[in-house]
Simulated assay, not measured.
Amino acid sequence: MREKFQAARFHGFGVLEDTHTHTHSHTSTCVCVCVCIYMHCKCCFIVIREMCNICILSLLQATKEETQGLISKTTKLQAEGRMLAVQAEVAAAFLAKFQLQPKEEQALREPVTQEFFDALDRVKAIHDDVKILLRSNQQTAGLEIMEQMALHEEAAYERLYRWAQNDCRGLTRDSCDVSPLLIRALACLQPRPVLFKYVIDEFGAARRSAVVRCFIEALTRGGASGTPRPIEMHCHDPLR
């Protein structure tokens, strides 16, 4: 009986030892698996982190290039805007110096007033200033402006001549009241001898008609109230 107990004990210890050995082997395997999984996860994490870093760097680089492109375009557009602003100022100054304003063109087409003479003086000034362009490399523009101003000037002189003629025809009253506009019109027409002569002839004819009419009235009618008496009433008096 004792021998059987000893045999059973030894057999139990063997089983326990085998079980412990098997458990230890299983635990080692699990640890190795866990270590492998951990290392694999760590490698995956490193790879993912590197991929994220690469993606972020690529995105940052693309954003940087796009931003640099936008900055370059913005700088270029700003430079072009400044250049266009300068060109606009130059064009505005050019037009202000060598072109008539709309109100000046309108004044040349309306009845003769002070604004008409101001616009005519402006046409003459532009016609003289445009000679500067003819001595530069802007000869085409200079010739076009000179031709345009010549047309304005001819039309203005023609209108002024017609107006001065009509105004002179009305100077048939006893007193010769010459308006300031007619005086200035005669001064403006002096550079055009033919037109000036026609206006002076019209003025002389109007005044001659007025003098003849006044003489006939003095000869036949006398004063407004009969005083002085008509000249023909004294024709028989040899002393008169």
Rank of each mutant, 00 (worst) to 15 (best):
N166I: 05
P180E: 07
E104Y: 04
A150H: 10
I145Y: 01
G69A: 15
A187C: 11
E105D: 06
S136F: 09
G170K: 12
T74Y: 13
G204H: 13
E154I: 08
F203R: 01
D167V: 08
R207P: 01
E115A: 15
E110Q: 15
L143S: 15
A206F: 08
E80I: 11
G142F: 05
L189A: 03
T75C: 11
V199A: 03
G142W: 03
L160W: 02
P191F: 07
V90A: 12
L84I: 08
Q148N: 14
M149G: 02
G69M: 13
H152N: 07
E154R: 10
A88V: 15
Q78Y: 11
E105A: 12
F98Q: 00
P193E: 05
Q78L: 14
A141N: 07
Q139F: 06
I126E: 01
Y157M: 13
T172H: 01
E104H: 06
L120H: 01
D129F: 14
G69D: 11
P193L: 06
A155D: 09
R122S: 11
L143K: 11
Q99P: 01
P193A: 14
D167P: 02
C188T: 15
A107F: 02
V123W: 00
W163Q: 00
V112T: 04
Y157N: 05
W163V: 03
L160D: 00
F98L: 03
T140E: 15
V123P: 00
K124A: 13
V194S: 09
A125W: 13
P102S: 06
A155F: 07
A85P: 01
Y198Q: 12
Q106I: 14
F116S: 00
K76S: 12
L186K: 04
A187P: 03
I183M: 11
G170E: 15
P193F: 08
T140A: 14
N137C: 09
I145C: 03
I183T: 12
R159N: 05
K131Y: 09
A79M: 06
A79L: 05
G81T: 11
T74Q: 10
L171N: 00
L143H: 11
L195M: 13
G142A: 06
A91G: 04
C176K: 07
T113K: 10
L151S: 14
E115H: 12
A96D: 14
M146Y: 06
V90W: 10
Q87C: 10
E110N: 10
E154Y: 07
K76G: 09
G69K: 11
D201M: 09
G142K: 02
Q139H: 08
Q190N: 10
E89M: 13
R109M: 14
L182W: 04
L134R: 07
L160N: 01
S136H: 07
A92Y: 07
Y157G: 01
L108S: 00
L133A: 03
R159I: 05
S209Q: 08
Q78E: 12
T113V: 09
P180F: 10
Q106E: 15
A210P: 02
A125D: 12
R159S: 10
V178Q: 02
L189F: 07
